[in-house]
């Protein structure tokens, strides 16, 4: 790589203003991205908002009704069970595999890459159809277990990328050999060196999988449907029953997505701090 240039002065002047066309484009982008979300937030606390520009009044009634809705707690619980179970299975299946391939089995890297891209190329409805067709016997048929298998596949790339990046960044192969040369066994290398170092990657991946699965609708509705109703299913149901309550559900869903994103950012910045610290002390 090229060494740093000899002029350290190439810091753009901070007072430079964005050009008019930039303001226009970014303004349009913000408008498009934010107006639907903000409107939903406002709609969920508006008494009536179909005849006027601004809502006629404000109320928390719809949240009250959302929380009171039959199924609300059950669906929330189901969503949590599904998301957490998926994160757990993902961690158990993907993390050791990625580590193994990077340190012991470089020959399997292309295969791993293909398997990780595959879910992008399979529409969720097709995956649902295939699984429902093959596993038409109990206890798997249309069961939450089959669903977990499906969402693990579907959310695989979200776990893979942060974990693989983390493992690559710490040069896991060299670290493993260094650890072993100092007398550590495989278990000690993993628990004392590898896992602490890739923890930010594992956390980001887990959060991404959690958020993705929490909002998952297609696989859930097509594989298990009403037998294991999750939060997104309840939301869709209410879009047909009561718009105000549906908007309250949407707000809950958006808010969870924002929170998880903030958490991921936070974990990411923690990871960087840890990295620079490691360099300073090492």
């Amino acid at each position: 790589m090229a060494k740093s240039r000899s002029t350290p002065f190439h810091v753009p002047n901070k007072k430079i203003r964005p050009a008019g066309w930039q303001v226009f484009l970014v303004g349009f982008f913000l408008f498009y991205m934010l107006v639907p979300i903000i409107s939903t937030y406002v709609f969920s606390v508006a008494t009536r908002w179909d005849r006027t520009i601004l809502p006629e009044g404000y109320t928390l009634e719809f949240y009250q009704r959302a929380f009171d809705a039959s199924y609300f707690t059950i669906t929330l619980r189901n969503s949590l069970i599904l998301s957490l179970a998926t994160v757990l299975v993902s961690l158990l299946v993907i993390v050791p595999t990625v580590y193994w391939v990077h340190t012991r089995l470089a020959g399997a890297k292309p295969l791993l890459d293909i398997l990780m891209i595959l879910p992008f190329g399979i529409p969720t409805v097709v995956l649902a159809l295939a699984l429902v067709q093959v596993y038409n016997f109990s206890p798997l048929a249309r069961s939450p277990f089959l669903l977990i298998g499906a969402v693990v596949i579907y959310s695989m790339p979200f776990m893979y990328r942060p974990v693989a990046n983390a493992i690559q960044a710490i040069d896991a192969h060299v670290m493993t050999e260094a650890g072993q040369s100092l007398g550590a066994n495989v278990f000690q290398v993993l628990s004392k060196i590898i896992i602490p170092n890739i923890l930010p990657g594992i956390l980001s991946g887990s959060l991404l999988v959690f958020a993705t699965v929490f909002a998952e609708y297609t696989l859930t509705s097509l594989i298990v449907g009403a037998r294991f109703k999750t939060f997104p299913l309840l939301l869709v149901e209410f879009t047909r029953i009561n718009g105000n309550v549906a908007s309250a559900f949407s707000v809950i869903s958006f808010t969870i997505a924002w929170l998880v994103s903030i958490l991921i950012l936070w974990v990411g910045s923690k990871g960087q701090v840890a990295k620079t610290k490691a360099i300073r002390t090492g």
């Binding site: 299946v93 595999t97 089995l105 399997a108 398997l115 399979i122 995956l127 295939a130 067709q133 499906a150």
Partner: peptide
């Protein structure tokens, strides 16, 4: 032996993705 470490993941993909698609 090293490929055995890859087996659990491969089996998972086969079971929940590849084999069902082939059946499809």
């Amino acid at each position: 032996v090293d490929w055995l470490g890859f087996a659990p993941f491969l089996l998972f993909c086969l079971a929940f993705e590849i084999v069902p698609i082939i059946f499809l």
